[in-house]
Design a protein around this nucleic acid. Structure first.
Lengths: 190, 190
DNA sequence: CTGAACCGTCAGTCTAAACTGACAATACTG
DNA sequence: CAGTATTGTCAGTTTAGACTGACGGTTCAG
């Protein structure tokens, strides 16, 4: 039960603490715990690791480690590595957090944002159609609804623009963009 | 089972379609389905609604509606409203999406970002302490680990700065900031 | 070709989160 | 003050998602 007490190795304890924090950040971000922990360990480990080593180190099943690695590769933040004269498959993580974050945002945009924006536009289109097909007070109500949906769609569209700027600017320059923006639009009270 | 077919009212269908989209967006954002649906309905509905009307309309239990409302109020995006000469408590949503988004980000920063950043700094501090207490090759390893953790912490700190700029700039001006940023740092290939 | 080492998959199990519905608490009416 | 309408809470149930471990497929050594 008590695997902290067994842990005499300071290196291991340093790793564990960071892994737990990253794991929690991942969960806030909608990524499951095991995936976060595997990612954290690969980020900390200079050498690429194989599935069994990951499973051992993190006390998770072989299957879970394998599935987590599959997810991380689908997100584009982990690479498969083979070493000559060695059968095993090793995995290594992107080492620069900005690159990793950029990749993640691009993938999230593709998987989640684009499809949901299409559905939002469909909903707005349906509302518009319904209001044009109605008469009298019902028409007025439907027009109001349509306006509300368009209002939200406009906001969502600006949010997507924000993502696009982030993706276009990229990496280290993002901080500079924001610093510039902060100067252009200085903080106000509240 | 088939409650779409029963649904002859076009207003209701327009609402339902939007509610489903918003619900999915909420889930992507880590907010549960019922909470998202309640929020969507309140956004669309000009008049404030009471708990039973919400539960009826969305086909969820009274308890679920009440809990969802409690969450939304804790997020600061729904207000309690009382009408003179009426016992019931009504609830209404913030109508401007930018205001709502701004409030949500501020709350998320407070609840999630700040605590996890503290833990990250603790982890970095622990790594530093461990490396200073070690000798020889172990020390070198611990210093490398510490460097990795600091690297991530720096990135995380810039991310928090980004949130702060967003909060400082606020509402409608955000779009302008981004348009300006986009001009300063034009899109490059990829 | 056979056996060993290893990775990927998925059915079944387990866990955590959401939801329901009954009850408690509160506010108001007559 | 008793009765009624309404909101809030939470124990128990249900549901969705994560995790395990056994199996099958593949690759390579001998």
């Amino acid at each position: 039960m008590n695997n902290k007490a067994d842990n005499r190795d300071p290196k291991r304890e340093v790793e564990d603490r960071f892994i737990e924090v990253w794991s929690d950040i991942s969960q806030l971000w909608g990524v499951n715990k095991s995936v976060g922990r595997v990612h954290a360990l690969l980020y900390l480990t200079h050498d690429a690791l194989d599935i069994d080593t990951l499973a051992d180190r993190l006390q998770i099943s072989h299957g879970n480690a394998s599935t987590s690695i599959r997810d991380l590769m689908a997100w584009g933040v982990v690479r498969r590595v083979t070493k000559p004269g060695d059968r095993k498959t090793y995995f290594e993580a992107e080492q620069d957090p900005w690159t990793w974050f950029h990749t993640t945002i691009r993938e999230r945009r593709r998987r989640e944002v684009v499809p949901v924006m299409e559905r939002l536009h469909e909903a707005a289109g349906f509302a518009e159609g319904a209001s044009k097909g109605a008469k009298g007070s019902e028409r007025a109500e439907l027009e109001e609804l349509h306006g509300k949906i368009e209002g939200f769609a406009d906001f969502a569209h600006e949010f997507v623009d924000l993502i696009d700027v982030f993706l276009a600017v990229g990496h280290g320059r993002m901080a500079k963009v924001f610093r510039t923006a902060a100067k252009l639009f200085p903080k106000r009270g509240g």
